[in-house]
Amino acid sequence: MKSFIGKRAIASGVSLVVLIVIVFFLSRLTGDPTNLYLPIDATQEMRDQFRQMHGFNDPLIVQFGRYVMDLVQGNFGNSLRQARPAMDVVLEAFTWTLWLAVITMVLVTIAAIVIGSLAAFRVGGVFDRIATFFSLIGAAAPDFWVAIVAIVIFAVNLHVLPTSGTGSVWHWVLPVGVLFIRPFGLILQVVRGSMISVLSSAYVKTARAKGVQSRSIIFVHGLRNAMLPVITVIGDQAAAILNGAVVVETVFGFPGIGKLMIDSILLRDFAVVLAVIMVSALAIFIMNLLIDLAYALLDPRIRY
């Protein structure tokens, strides 16, 4: 297990270093932040002073060397926009996104597993058809469009939910609801497919022959064995929300990591961009590790 984690850490570490180097140089080639942060009539002296202060005057390679040296000492640089340590800014945003991901994925997992298992129990029945229909639509719906339609219905026409920001429980309803749809559709399909194949296996037939109740066949005998492919998809979708809720966060003005990413790139806040990449890479790494642990827990035959 230890060597397994070690190998994983090396692979992730290498890719992280490669990405940081690429992003560091590419981001500085895109332009000078001076024009964005100083007034349009700033004098040349002010501009020079600004560049001097943030070290944009030195050759790129020197800037990179300085960044790496700071990094080694645990200093991720300062945010240009908010004038405080970049890592503080990122962790604050990450906490919001983490909550969003956790709440959404818990709801999705429960709903998809319960509905998917029940649908698989009577393949071709009315319940199965309805569940399949909605899961297909859900898996096909683009989140930005669902977000917009939800705003029109619930905020513009019915005036029941706020459209953006945070502050009350109601602010979470639309973002969570919109993020819920696609993973729900995808996971439901996997649960259903996996459950169908498990329910036709020999040990389920034996349990049925012994007269075990339907409910306990589904949730005791079937579920644990049907969960392996489901876990993979749950992990993928959770990772997608942790890092890719860009669209939903932007539409709903949610102060998460996706919105921070977009804003920081637009305003050339380089230190924050790099810190976002590092934090999300770490999140993905831990996420994948948890998934592998879940595999081992569910199926004792799996050993690392």
């Binding site: 692979a11 992730s12 290498v14 890719s15 992280l16 490669v18 990405l19 992003v23 590419l26 990772a239 997608a240 942790l242 890092n243 890719g244 860009v246 990413m261 977009i262 790139i265 961009v273 990449i277 999300s280 890479a281 993905i284 790494f285």
Partner: peptide, 13 residues
């Protein structure tokens, strides 16, 4: 290496 980063984030950058 490609898999360890989410595609949308990479595309945005």
């Amino acid at each position: 290496v490609i898999m360890s980063f989410p595609s949308l984030l990479l595309a945005v950058i």
